[in-house]
Nucleic acid binder design. Structure first.
Lengths: 194, 194
DNA sequence: CATTTGATTTGATTGTAATCAAATTAAAAG
DNA sequence: CTTTTAATTTGATTACAATCAAATCAAATG
Protein backbone atom coordinates (compact mmCIF):
# COMPACT_ATOMS: atom_id res chain seq x y z
CA UNK A 1 0.00 0.00 0.00
CA UNK A 2 2.61 2.42 1.08
CA UNK A 3 4.47 2.79 -2.16
CA UNK A 4 7.35 5.20 -1.88
CA UNK A 5 6.36 8.15 -3.95
CA UNK A 6 8.52 8.61 -7.01
CA UNK A 7 9.64 12.10 -6.11
CA UNK A 8 10.70 12.99 -9.58
CA UNK A 9 8.80 16.15 -9.03
CA UNK A 10 10.86 19.21 -8.32
CA UNK A 11 8.28 20.92 -6.21
CA UNK A 12 7.65 17.83 -4.13
CA UNK A 13 11.31 17.50 -3.26
CA UNK A 14 11.55 21.12 -2.34
CA UNK A 15 8.57 20.60 -0.07
CA UNK A 16 10.28 17.72 1.66
CA UNK A 17 13.36 19.78 2.39
CA UNK A 18 11.26 22.72 3.41
CA UNK A 19 9.42 20.55 5.87
CA UNK A 20 12.77 19.72 7.45
CA UNK A 21 13.87 23.33 7.34
CA UNK A 22 12.55 24.36 10.69
CA UNK A 23 14.11 23.64 14.09
CA UNK A 24 10.81 22.68 15.70
CA UNK A 25 10.07 20.17 12.98
CA UNK A 26 13.56 18.69 13.23
CA UNK A 27 12.98 18.25 16.93
CA UNK A 28 9.63 16.65 16.30
CA UNK A 29 11.14 14.16 13.90
CA UNK A 30 13.78 13.30 16.47
CA UNK A 31 11.31 12.97 19.27
CA UNK A 32 8.98 10.84 17.21
CA UNK A 33 11.88 8.72 16.10
CA UNK A 34 12.62 7.46 19.59
CA UNK A 35 8.98 6.44 19.93
CA UNK A 36 5.63 7.31 18.40
CA UNK A 37 4.04 10.22 20.18
CA UNK A 38 0.86 12.23 20.16
CA UNK A 39 0.44 15.93 19.74
CA UNK A 40 -0.12 17.09 23.26
CA UNK A 41 2.97 15.26 24.39
CA UNK A 42 5.06 17.10 21.81
CA UNK A 43 3.43 20.41 22.66
CA UNK A 44 4.35 19.86 26.28
CA UNK A 45 7.95 18.87 25.62
CA UNK A 46 8.57 21.66 23.17
CA UNK A 47 6.59 24.17 25.15
CA UNK A 48 4.48 25.26 22.22
CA UNK A 49 0.79 25.72 21.68
CA UNK A 50 -0.96 22.53 20.49
CA UNK A 51 -2.24 24.44 17.47
CA UNK A 52 1.32 25.19 16.44
CA UNK A 53 2.38 21.58 16.86
CA UNK A 54 -0.61 20.45 14.86
CA UNK A 55 0.44 22.75 12.07
CA UNK A 56 3.99 21.41 12.05
CA UNK A 57 2.82 17.82 12.20
CA UNK A 58 0.52 18.24 9.24
CA UNK A 59 3.45 19.45 7.17
CA UNK A 60 5.54 16.46 8.13
CA UNK A 61 2.71 14.11 7.26
CA UNK A 62 2.08 15.90 3.98
CA UNK A 63 5.61 15.21 2.75
CA UNK A 64 5.48 11.62 3.93
CA UNK A 65 7.91 11.75 6.83
CA UNK A 66 5.36 10.86 9.47
CA UNK A 67 2.23 8.75 9.59
CA UNK A 68 -0.78 9.26 11.71
CA UNK A 69 -2.65 6.55 13.56
CA UNK A 70 -5.86 7.44 15.36
CA UNK A 71 -6.32 5.65 18.61
CA UNK A 72 -9.07 6.61 21.04
CA UNK A 73 -8.85 10.35 20.98
CA UNK A 74 -5.12 10.32 20.57
CA UNK A 75 -3.48 10.96 17.24
CA UNK A 76 -0.24 9.07 17.33
CA UNK A 77 2.47 10.08 14.92
CA UNK A 78 5.29 7.77 13.90
CA UNK A 79 8.30 8.12 11.69
CA UNK A 80 8.44 6.62 8.22
CA UNK A 81 11.96 5.36 7.85
CA UNK A 82 12.29 4.81 4.10
CA UNK A 83 13.11 8.28 2.97
CA UNK A 84 15.70 8.79 5.64
CA UNK A 85 17.97 6.15 4.17
CA UNK A 86 18.57 8.12 1.02
CA UNK A 87 21.52 10.43 0.84
CA UNK A 88 21.07 14.14 0.41
CA UNK A 89 22.69 13.80 -2.98
CA UNK A 90 20.14 11.26 -4.11
CA UNK A 91 17.33 13.48 -2.92
CA UNK A 92 18.72 16.51 -4.65
CA UNK A 93 19.82 15.01 -7.94
CA UNK A 94 17.29 15.34 -10.70
CA UNK A 95 17.51 12.86 -13.56
CA UNK A 96 20.24 14.30 -15.70
CA UNK A 97 18.49 13.83 -19.00
CA UNK A 98 15.27 15.32 -17.82
CA UNK A 99 16.69 18.31 -16.03
CA UNK A 100 16.37 20.93 -18.70
CA UNK A 101 13.09 19.50 -19.83
CA UNK A 102 11.81 19.75 -16.28
CA UNK A 103 12.87 23.35 -16.08
CA UNK A 104 11.05 24.22 -19.23
CA UNK A 105 8.07 22.14 -18.28
CA UNK A 106 7.81 23.90 -14.97
CA UNK A 107 8.22 27.26 -16.61
CA UNK A 108 5.35 26.44 -18.93
CA UNK A 109 3.13 25.22 -16.13
CA UNK A 110 3.85 28.29 -14.08
CA UNK A 111 2.94 30.48 -16.99
CA UNK A 112 -0.35 28.69 -17.41
CA UNK A 113 -1.08 28.87 -13.70
CA UNK A 114 -0.21 32.55 -13.65
CA UNK A 115 -2.63 33.12 -16.50
CA UNK A 116 -5.60 31.42 -14.93
CA UNK A 117 -5.08 32.15 -11.25
CA UNK A 118 -5.24 35.52 -9.54
CA UNK A 119 -4.83 35.73 -5.81
CA UNK A 120 -5.28 31.99 -5.53
CA UNK A 121 -8.59 32.05 -7.36
CA UNK A 122 -9.37 30.58 -10.73
CA UNK A 123 -10.42 33.37 -13.08
CA UNK A 124 -11.78 31.03 -15.68
CA UNK A 125 -11.66 27.33 -16.36
CA UNK A 126 -9.37 26.73 -19.36
CA UNK A 127 -10.97 25.06 -22.30
CA UNK A 128 -7.78 23.63 -23.77
CA UNK A 129 -7.26 20.18 -22.37
CA UNK A 130 -3.57 20.59 -21.54
CA UNK A 131 -4.11 23.79 -19.65
CA UNK A 132 -7.10 22.34 -17.89
CA UNK A 133 -4.90 19.46 -16.82
CA UNK A 134 -2.32 21.79 -15.34
CA UNK A 135 -4.91 23.83 -13.51
CA UNK A 136 -6.66 20.76 -12.11
CA UNK A 137 -3.37 19.27 -11.08
CA UNK A 138 -2.80 22.38 -9.02
CA UNK A 139 -6.26 22.27 -7.49
CA UNK A 140 -6.11 18.61 -6.53
CA UNK A 141 -3.10 19.41 -4.33
CA UNK A 142 -5.63 20.76 -1.85
CA UNK A 143 -6.75 17.22 -1.11
CA UNK A 144 -4.68 15.06 1.12
CA UNK A 145 -3.81 11.70 -0.43
CA UNK A 146 -5.44 8.81 1.36
CA UNK A 147 -8.01 10.98 3.11
CA UNK A 148 -11.70 10.51 2.43
CA UNK A 149 -13.98 13.46 1.67
CA UNK A 150 -17.71 13.85 1.56
CA UNK A 151 -19.16 15.65 -1.43
CA UNK A 152 -19.86 18.62 0.82
CA UNK A 153 -16.20 18.76 1.86
CA UNK A 154 -15.08 18.55 -1.74
CA UNK A 155 -17.39 21.40 -2.61
CA UNK A 156 -16.11 23.47 0.25
CA UNK A 157 -12.56 23.04 -0.98
CA UNK A 158 -13.43 23.80 -4.59
CA UNK A 159 -15.53 26.89 -3.94
CA UNK A 160 -12.27 28.55 -2.90
CA UNK A 161 -11.15 28.33 -6.50
CA UNK A 162 -14.24 28.84 -8.60
CA UNK A 163 -18.00 29.09 -8.29
CA UNK A 164 -18.71 26.33 -10.75
CA UNK A 165 -17.95 23.68 -8.21
CA UNK A 166 -19.89 20.95 -9.94
CA UNK A 167 -17.88 21.31 -13.12
CA UNK A 168 -14.58 21.31 -11.28
CA UNK A 169 -15.61 18.23 -9.33
CA UNK A 170 -16.58 16.38 -12.45
CA UNK A 171 -13.38 17.43 -14.21
CA UNK A 172 -11.25 16.12 -11.38
CA UNK A 173 -12.94 12.74 -11.77
CA UNK A 174 -12.73 12.84 -15.56
CA UNK A 175 -9.02 13.60 -15.51
CA UNK A 176 -8.49 10.73 -13.10
CA UNK A 177 -7.19 13.00 -10.38
CA UNK A 178 -9.87 11.98 -7.91
CA UNK A 179 -12.17 9.01 -7.52
CA UNK A 180 -15.65 8.63 -6.13
CA UNK A 181 -17.48 5.69 -4.65
CA UNK A 182 -20.74 5.73 -2.73
CA UNK A 183 -20.59 9.48 -2.27
CA UNK A 184 -17.04 9.35 -0.91
CA UNK A 185 -14.23 11.11 -2.76
CA UNK A 186 -10.49 10.63 -2.50
CA UNK A 187 -7.43 11.87 -4.29
CA UNK A 188 -5.64 9.57 -6.68
CA UNK A 189 -1.89 9.70 -6.27
CA UNK A 190 -0.30 9.67 -9.70
CA UNK A 191 2.92 7.82 -10.33
CA UNK A 192 4.48 10.87 -11.98
CA UNK A 193 3.88 11.98 -15.49
CA UNK A 194 3.88 15.20 -17.39
CA UNK B 1 33.93 24.44 26.80
CA UNK B 2 32.45 25.40 23.51
CA UNK B 3 29.01 23.99 24.11
CA UNK B 4 27.35 25.62 21.13
CA UNK B 5 28.55 23.56 18.24
CA UNK B 6 27.51 24.77 14.81
CA UNK B 7 27.20 21.48 13.01
CA UNK B 8 25.46 19.68 15.82
CA UNK B 9 23.44 22.83 16.20
CA UNK B 10 19.79 22.45 15.61
CA UNK B 11 19.44 25.80 13.95
CA UNK B 12 22.31 25.17 11.55
CA UNK B 13 20.79 21.92 10.33
CA UNK B 14 17.43 23.53 9.87
CA UNK B 15 19.14 26.20 7.81
CA UNK B 16 20.72 23.59 5.58
CA UNK B 17 17.39 21.95 4.89
CA UNK B 18 15.74 25.30 4.45
CA UNK B 19 18.32 26.22 1.85
CA UNK B 20 17.32 23.11 -0.08
CA UNK B 21 13.65 23.80 0.43
CA UNK B 22 13.10 25.90 -2.64
CA UNK B 23 12.71 24.64 -6.22
CA UNK B 24 14.99 27.29 -7.67
CA UNK B 25 17.77 26.41 -5.28
CA UNK B 26 17.37 22.71 -6.00
CA UNK B 27 17.72 23.51 -9.65
CA UNK B 28 20.77 25.63 -8.99
CA UNK B 29 22.43 22.82 -7.08
CA UNK B 30 21.72 20.46 -9.93
CA UNK B 31 22.97 22.85 -12.55
CA UNK B 32 26.12 23.62 -10.62
CA UNK B 33 26.69 19.95 -10.04
CA UNK B 34 27.14 19.17 -13.71
CA UNK B 35 29.73 21.94 -13.91
CA UNK B 36 30.70 25.07 -12.01
CA UNK B 37 28.75 28.06 -13.24
CA UNK B 38 28.51 31.77 -12.68
CA UNK B 39 25.50 33.80 -11.73
CA UNK B 40 24.47 35.30 -15.02
CA UNK B 41 24.50 31.88 -16.63
CA UNK B 42 22.13 30.57 -14.00
CA UNK B 43 19.94 33.64 -14.26
CA UNK B 44 19.67 33.05 -17.98
CA UNK B 45 18.89 29.36 -17.76
CA UNK B 46 16.35 29.79 -15.01
CA UNK B 47 14.94 32.95 -16.48
CA UNK B 48 15.22 34.91 -13.26
CA UNK B 49 16.61 38.29 -12.39
CA UNK B 50 20.33 38.17 -11.51
CA UNK B 51 19.53 39.77 -8.16
CA UNK B 52 17.26 36.88 -7.32
CA UNK B 53 19.87 34.33 -8.31
CA UNK B 54 22.44 36.15 -6.25
CA UNK B 55 20.18 35.93 -3.27
CA UNK B 56 19.66 32.21 -3.70
CA UNK B 57 23.35 31.58 -4.24
CA UNK B 58 24.32 33.39 -1.08
CA UNK B 59 22.04 31.12 0.89
CA UNK B 60 23.57 28.03 -0.62
CA UNK B 61 27.05 29.30 0.14
CA UNK B 62 26.04 30.24 3.67
CA UNK B 63 25.06 26.66 4.52
CA UNK B 64 28.17 25.27 2.88
CA UNK B 65 26.66 23.59 -0.14
CA UNK B 66 28.45 25.76 -2.68
CA UNK B 67 31.78 27.53 -2.83
CA UNK B 68 32.62 30.69 -4.61
CA UNK B 69 35.75 31.33 -6.68
CA UNK B 70 36.32 34.78 -8.05
CA UNK B 71 37.83 34.81 -11.48
CA UNK B 72 38.07 37.99 -13.51
CA UNK B 73 34.68 39.49 -13.00
CA UNK B 74 33.01 36.14 -12.88
CA UNK B 75 31.96 34.57 -9.62
CA UNK B 76 32.07 30.88 -10.24
CA UNK B 77 30.08 28.66 -7.94
CA UNK B 78 30.83 24.98 -7.47
CA UNK B 79 29.26 22.21 -5.48
CA UNK B 80 30.79 20.93 -2.27
CA UNK B 81 30.21 17.21 -2.37
CA UNK B 82 30.84 16.14 1.22
CA UNK B 83 27.51 16.90 2.77
CA UNK B 84 25.61 15.24 -0.01
CA UNK B 85 26.95 11.82 0.88
CA UNK B 86 25.20 11.78 4.21
CA UNK B 87 21.78 10.24 4.47
CA UNK B 88 18.79 12.31 5.43
CA UNK B 89 18.59 10.29 8.61
CA UNK B 90 22.12 11.20 9.59
CA UNK B 91 21.43 14.84 8.95
CA UNK B 92 18.24 14.81 10.95
CA UNK B 93 19.29 12.72 13.91
CA UNK B 94 20.43 14.71 16.87
CA UNK B 95 22.73 12.98 19.35
CA UNK B 96 20.28 11.00 21.41
CA UNK B 97 21.82 11.86 24.74
CA UNK B 98 22.00 15.53 24.03
CA UNK B 99 18.57 15.94 22.54
CA UNK B 100 16.71 17.18 25.54
CA UNK B 101 19.68 19.19 26.67
CA UNK B 102 19.76 20.90 23.28
CA UNK B 103 16.11 21.75 23.55
CA UNK B 104 16.60 23.33 26.91
CA UNK B 105 19.81 25.01 25.81
CA UNK B 106 18.06 26.52 22.84
CA UNK B 107 15.15 27.62 24.99
CA UNK B 108 17.53 29.35 27.34
CA UNK B 109 19.39 31.06 24.53
CA UNK B 110 16.18 32.25 22.97
CA UNK B 111 15.11 33.69 26.27
CA UNK B 112 18.37 35.58 26.62
CA UNK B 113 18.18 36.82 23.05
CA UNK B 114 14.61 37.91 23.55
CA UNK B 115 15.66 39.85 26.62
CA UNK B 116 18.48 41.78 25.03
CA UNK B 117 17.22 42.24 21.48
CA UNK B 118 14.27 44.29 20.38
CA UNK B 119 13.50 44.61 16.71
CA UNK B 120 16.89 43.19 15.83
CA UNK B 121 18.70 45.77 17.90
CA UNK B 122 20.71 45.21 21.05
CA UNK B 123 19.09 47.15 23.88
CA UNK B 124 22.07 46.78 26.16
CA UNK B 125 25.24 44.72 26.19
CA UNK B 126 24.88 42.03 28.85
CA UNK B 127 27.43 42.15 31.61
CA UNK B 128 27.17 38.50 32.59
CA UNK B 129 29.72 36.55 30.60
CA UNK B 130 27.40 33.72 29.62
CA UNK B 131 24.74 36.03 28.32
CA UNK B 132 27.32 38.12 26.54
CA UNK B 133 28.53 34.97 24.86
CA UNK B 134 25.06 34.13 23.62
CA UNK B 135 24.47 37.63 22.33
CA UNK B 136 27.83 37.80 20.57
CA UNK B 137 27.30 34.39 19.06
CA UNK B 138 24.16 35.76 17.51
CA UNK B 139 25.89 38.89 16.27
CA UNK B 140 28.82 37.08 14.69
CA UNK B 141 26.36 35.23 12.43
CA UNK B 142 26.27 38.44 10.42
CA UNK B 143 29.79 37.77 9.20
CA UNK B 144 30.33 35.26 6.46
CA UNK B 145 32.90 32.61 7.36
CA UNK B 146 36.01 32.85 5.25
CA UNK B 147 35.32 36.37 4.09
CA UNK B 148 37.68 39.19 4.98
CA UNK B 149 36.41 42.48 6.38
CA UNK B 150 38.02 45.85 6.84
CA UNK B 151 37.52 47.54 10.19
CA UNK B 152 35.12 49.93 8.49
CA UNK B 153 33.03 47.03 7.24
CA UNK B 154 32.99 45.44 10.66
CA UNK B 155 31.83 48.70 12.16
CA UNK B 156 29.12 49.05 9.58
CA UNK B 157 27.80 45.62 10.45
CA UNK B 158 27.96 46.21 14.19
CA UNK B 159 26.33 49.64 14.20
CA UNK B 160 23.14 47.83 13.20
CA UNK B 161 23.12 46.24 16.64
CA UNK B 162 24.49 48.84 19.02
CA UNK B 163 26.18 52.22 19.03
CA UNK B 164 29.15 51.09 21.07
CA UNK B 165 30.75 49.50 18.06
CA UNK B 166 34.25 49.55 19.46
CA UNK B 167 33.23 47.54 22.50
CA UNK B 168 31.37 44.99 20.44
CA UNK B 169 34.31 44.60 18.09
CA UNK B 170 36.72 44.06 20.94
CA UNK B 171 34.34 41.58 22.59
CA UNK B 172 34.07 39.51 19.43
CA UNK B 173 37.86 39.21 19.40
CA UNK B 174 38.05 38.53 23.14
CA UNK B 175 35.49 35.75 22.93
CA UNK B 176 37.42 34.24 20.04
CA UNK B 177 34.55 34.64 17.63
CA UNK B 178 36.55 36.81 15.25
CA UNK B 179 40.22 37.35 14.55
CA UNK B 180 42.18 40.35 13.39
CA UNK B 181 45.48 40.66 11.59
CA UNK B 182 46.92 43.75 9.98
CA UNK B 183 43.61 45.56 10.11
CA UNK B 184 41.76 42.68 8.47
CA UNK B 185 39.01 40.89 10.37
CA UNK B 186 37.46 37.50 9.76
CA UNK B 187 35.03 35.23 11.45
CA UNK B 188 36.36 32.21 13.25
CA UNK B 189 34.41 29.11 12.44
CA UNK B 190 34.11 27.03 15.55
CA UNK B 191 35.23 23.48 14.93
CA UNK B 192 33.22 20.31 15.51
CA UNK B 193 32.02 18.62 12.38
CA UNK B 194 30.46 15.19 12.11
C1' DC C 1 -26.90 14.18 25.84
C1' DA C 2 -23.56 16.95 28.43
C1' DT C 3 -18.73 16.79 29.71
C1' DT C 4 -14.04 15.89 29.21
C1' DT C 5 -9.94 15.40 26.51
C1' DG C 6 -6.98 15.87 22.72
C1' DA C 7 -6.73 17.59 17.84
C1' DT C 8 -7.68 20.61 14.32
C1' DT C 9 -9.29 24.82 12.10
C1' DT C 10 -9.85 29.76 11.83
C1' DG C 11 -8.49 34.55 12.32
C1' DA C 12 -5.32 37.82 13.53
C1' DT C 13 -0.70 39.13 14.04
C1' DT C 14 3.89 39.19 13.34
C1' DG C 15 7.82 37.79 10.96
C1' DT C 16 10.40 36.11 7.14
C1' DA C 17 11.18 35.01 2.12
C1' DA C 18 11.09 35.78 -2.87
C1' DT C 19 11.26 38.78 -6.38
C1' DC C 20 12.57 42.63 -9.37
C1' DA C 21 14.20 47.40 -10.55
C1' DA C 22 17.49 50.58 -9.61
C1' DA C 23 21.72 51.87 -7.60
C1' DT C 24 26.28 50.38 -6.45
C1' DT C 25 30.54 47.89 -6.65
C1' DA C 26 34.54 45.65 -8.98
C1' DA C 27 37.30 44.01 -12.56
C1' DA C 28 38.79 44.39 -17.26
C1' DA C 29 39.40 46.79 -21.41
C1' DG C 30 39.10 50.67 -24.41
C1' DC D 1 39.34 57.96 -16.60
C1' DT D 2 35.38 56.18 -18.96
C1' DT D 3 32.90 52.29 -20.53
C1' DT D 4 31.58 47.51 -20.27
C1' DT D 5 30.29 43.38 -17.93
C1' DA D 6 28.97 40.60 -14.11
C1' DA D 7 27.66 40.57 -9.17
C1' DT D 8 25.82 42.40 -5.21
C1' DT D 9 23.13 45.49 -2.30
C1' DT D 10 19.12 48.25 -1.32
C1' DG D 11 14.26 49.30 -1.25
C1' DA D 12 9.82 48.16 -2.23
C1' DT D 13 6.35 44.87 -2.96
C1' DT D 14 4.05 40.83 -2.58
C1' DA D 15 3.61 36.28 -0.87
C1' DC D 16 4.07 32.82 2.53
C1' DA D 17 5.16 30.93 7.33
C1' DA D 18 4.91 30.70 12.41
C1' DT D 19 2.49 31.48 16.27
C1' DC D 20 -1.27 31.73 19.60
C1' DA D 21 -6.11 32.30 21.27
C1' DA D 22 -10.55 31.07 20.49
C1' DA D 23 -13.82 28.27 18.23
C1' DT D 24 -14.90 23.86 16.52
C1' DC D 25 -14.63 18.90 16.15
C1' DA D 26 -14.58 13.94 17.51
C1' DA D 27 -14.11 10.21 20.58
C1' DA D 28 -14.85 8.46 25.06
C1' DT D 29 -17.23 8.64 29.44
C1' DG D 30 -20.25 9.72 32.89
Amino acid sequence: MNKTEPQTNLEARAQLFKALGHPVRLLIVNLVQTKPRHGEELAEILNLNPATISHHLSQLVAVGLLTLKKDQYYHTYSLIGDVLKKTLGEMIRLPQAGLMADVEEDAYQNKVLATFFRHGRLLQIPSQLKKQQIVLHRIVQEFEPGKEYSEREVNQALIEFHDDVAYLRRSLIDHGLMKREAGIYWRVVEAMEG
